[in-house]
Amino acid sequence: MTACAIEPTAENGDDDPTPDAPCAITADGTYAARLARDGDSWFPERWTLDGPEPYAVPLPAHQPEEPGTEVQPMADGRVLIRRLSQRRHAFSLLYPTGPGTGELLLGAVECPDEDTVLRLLPPAPCGQRAYAVAVGRRSTALWLVAGGVFGPEHLAEIPGRCSGGVWLDRRGRMLALDREVGGRTKAIVVDLERGGEVSPLLQIAAGSDDRLLLADPDSGLLLISSDAPSPGKPRLGWGVLGSSLPVRFPESLRLADRALTPFAIQPGQVLQPESCAVGLRIDGPFGSWVGVWRPADRRLHQLTAPDGWLAGSGLWTEDGVLRLPYATEAEPCGVARLAVPPAGGEPRGGGSSEGAAEVAADAADALEPEAPEPVAPRPVPLQQAPLARLVTK
């Protein structure tokens, strides 16, 4: 089976080939998967998260994995693995079989062009399919790599170089990508049920780079990165899918010498995007920690991450508990439950077990927001927000 091949996941140089995504979690929060390390060797590991206590199942193959290998959990408990060998990407499903590891071969994707980079997209909402994009010089190929009938299937060819990848609905039909064309990056929507039909999602200004980082299908809340307020300096903002209100760029999401990356939005807040809690990874000179923020509460709460946090990984429960996976020598599979500040309130204190985490600091005083009128989220492009209407408070 022919298809296209994956960008290296090491970003720290050859001496420290740590995977970019240390832990991938299914959309329903049931399973997680990561590459674990045993000395100098890497092996896939599946975590079960929906029981009374989290537990890990190692899924080693007949030989150690390369550090750039990608893994992704499926809703049935199997783990998708992508292995690269000379521009050929082989996909398999791994599953425990008593003391061993079973493996179902799915086929391969080949990229003859050495400049083509292939990567897995975030887990699909249904948990039964998995997708990848192969980014070439002038176009991006979208592939279904698991859940098809005959192995990897080429779904669409999208003009331009695409990055990112955010699901906009619970069905796994509408996929948002950040497409670079003519030196500018704009978020687009790809309709998987209409042959990969592309439509614009976000354009704040003609000359700005506008990316979609995260979305919640229940409330329609979108987390956005754009340099429209400050050319050349991307800032975090928020909007609502299908709303006519402008994108807003709160000052509370602007920290000097710190990088903020949203990784999880509280689900279940139907028609209440302003009340959704957002988990952010904060990176600074001395490590990474956790931020919690809500549109209706213009205040960024900064929380100490648990030791061994698989940084950038986590999920919210509907009742507002932030769960963060971590692995230490003493506890190789753990989940910390953070007691986060309520909307408009003060921190409630440290986290409870399955791990531990405590409040470290808060940002400046909150301001009363303009509450957007609730609108039903729908998988259609966000209306354009002219630069003159940007809100930066």
Rank of each mutant, 00 (worst) to 15 (best):
E7R: 15
A10G: 15
A10C: 12
N12R: 15
N12S: 11
T30C: 05
Y31G: 07
A33H: 04
A36K: 01
W42R: 11
W47D: 01
W47Y: 06
A61Y: 00
E70A: 15
V71G: 05
M74K: 07
D76S: 12
V79M: 01
R87L: 15
Y95G: 03
L106W: 09
E110M: 07
D115C: 00
L118I: 10
L120M: 15
P123G: 03
P125F: 12
C126L: 09
Q128W: 08
A130H: 09
V135Y: 06
L144W: 07
A146W: 06
A146H: 05
G148V: 08
G151L: 09
L155I: 08
I158R: 03
P159W: 11
G164N: 13
V166P: 05
W167N: 04
R173L: 12
L175V: 12
G183T: 01
T185V: 14
A187T: 13
V189Q: 15
R194C: 05
G195M: 09
G196Y: 08
P200S: 09
Q203S: 14
A205T: 04
S208E: 04
S208R: 00
D209G: 10
D210H: 02
A215D: 02
D216W: 00
G220A: 10
P234A: 01
G239I: 02
P250E: 10
T261P: 00
F263T: 02
A264E: 05
G268H: 06
P273I: 03
S275M: 08
C276V: 13
L280W: 13
G284M: 09
W289K: 08
V290Y: 00
W293K: 10
R299P: 02
L300A: 08
H301R: 06
W316A: 05
T317E: 09
D319E: 14
L324P: 02
Y326S: 05
E329L: 11
P332R: 02
C333M: 12
L338H: 11
L338S: 01
P342W: 03
P342S: 11
G345S: 10
A357R: 01
E358P: 00
D365Q: 03
D365W: 07
P369Q: 00
V375S: 09
P379L: 04
P379F: 02
L387W: 01
A388M: 03
